[in-house]
Computed example of a mutant assay.
Amino acid sequence: MLAELLPATVIVAESSSDPVGVALHPDEERIAVDALGRRSPEFVTGRHCAHRALRRLGVPPSPVLSGAGGAPRWPPGVVGSITHCPGYRAAAVARAADMVTIGIDAEPGEALPDGVLKLVSLPQERAELAGLARLSRPVPWDKLLFSAKESVYKAWFPLTGRWLGFMDARLTIDADRGTFDARLLVPGPTVGGRELTGFTGRWLARDGLLLTAVALPA
């Protein structure tokens, strides 16, 4: 499903379950254990998807470790993103010659818990969500907004190494085209000799899931 949202130069691998017996690189295995000493199935399957995508991209096998903020550290010359939620895991990778950055996110297709929307949205965004809610499409627009902002953050962080708060980007969702725009409200990084002022992305609601993706071409 995720491949529908991304350019052909981006390779996607996804899974709706956690395969048994997945072997990780020893260095990955050390960071696959959670605080209680359990092997995290989300991490394992996410890295399994990442390795499948990298193989299809023609990249020699190597561990995908975690860098600053827990973001994946991709092999040289590769950009990518990993996401997981209940019932879905995915990774998307591309050559850095083709894409500057990628951000993907998956969420269950259900509304945000009470009180969360005000913590992750601007007043203008909430006003627009109220308009979207009047449409006949049964999409949890508040959760979609959250997911899109997660994708924007995942695309932003590799370019800056800095946190991007939920209030630092103004998001607009196009219900008809299945797209969204994020206008940065803080100074952006320099990309191609110009300051980056925002991101565009695509979204999909299907099979009980919300998927969002951002891909910035080189």
Rank of each mutant, 00 (worst) to 15 (best):
L2W: 14
A3M: 05
A3G: 14
L6H: 12
L6N: 10
P7L: 10
A8K: 14
V10S: 10
V10G: 13
A13R: 14
S16G: 15
D18E: 15
D18G: 09
G21C: 10
V22Q: 12
L24S: 06
P26C: 00
R30E: 15
A32F: 05
D34Q: 06
A35F: 00
L36M: 12
R38G: 06
P41L: 04
F43D: 04
V44T: 12
G46Y: 03
R47D: 03
R47Q: 07
H48G: 10
H48Y: 15
A50I: 01
R55P: 04
R55L: 12
V59E: 03
V59D: 01
V59L: 01
P60L: 08
P61E: 13
S62E: 15
V64D: 06
L65H: 07
G67H: 08
G69A: 04
G69Y: 07
R73P: 00
R73D: 04
W74G: 09
P76N: 12
V79D: 00
S81I: 03
I82T: 01
T83P: 00
T83F: 00
H84G: 00
C85S: 01
P86L: 01
P86N: 03
R89W: 02
A94Q: 08
A94L: 05
M99H: 02
V100K: 11
T101W: 02
I102G: 08
G103N: 03
A106I: 14
E107W: 11
E110F: 11
D114M: 00
G115M: 00
L119Y: 03
V120M: 04
L122P: 07
E125P: 00
E128Q: 05
A130G: 01
R134S: 14
L135T: 15
P140L: 11
W141T: 05
S147L: 06
S147M: 08
K149L: 02
S151I: 05
S151W: 07
Y153L: 02
K154T: 06
K154W: 03
K154C: 11
A155R: 02
A155N: 07
F157C: 10
F157Q: 12
L159P: 06
T160S: 09
R162W: 09
W163L: 15
L164N: 14
F166E: 02
M167T: 15
L171K: 02
L171M: 06
T172F: 01
I173D: 09
R177A: 14
R177P: 05
G178W: 05
T179A: 10
D181E: 10
D181I: 02
A182W: 03
R183I: 03
R183Y: 00
L184I: 02
L185P: 04
P187M: 11
G188C: 14
P189I: 07
T190K: 12
G192T: 12
R194S: 13
E195S: 05
E195Y: 00
G198T: 04
R202G: 14
W203K: 08
L204K: 10
G208M: 06
G208I: 06
G208F: 09
V214L: 13
A215Y: 10
L216G: 12
P217W: 15
P217R: 15
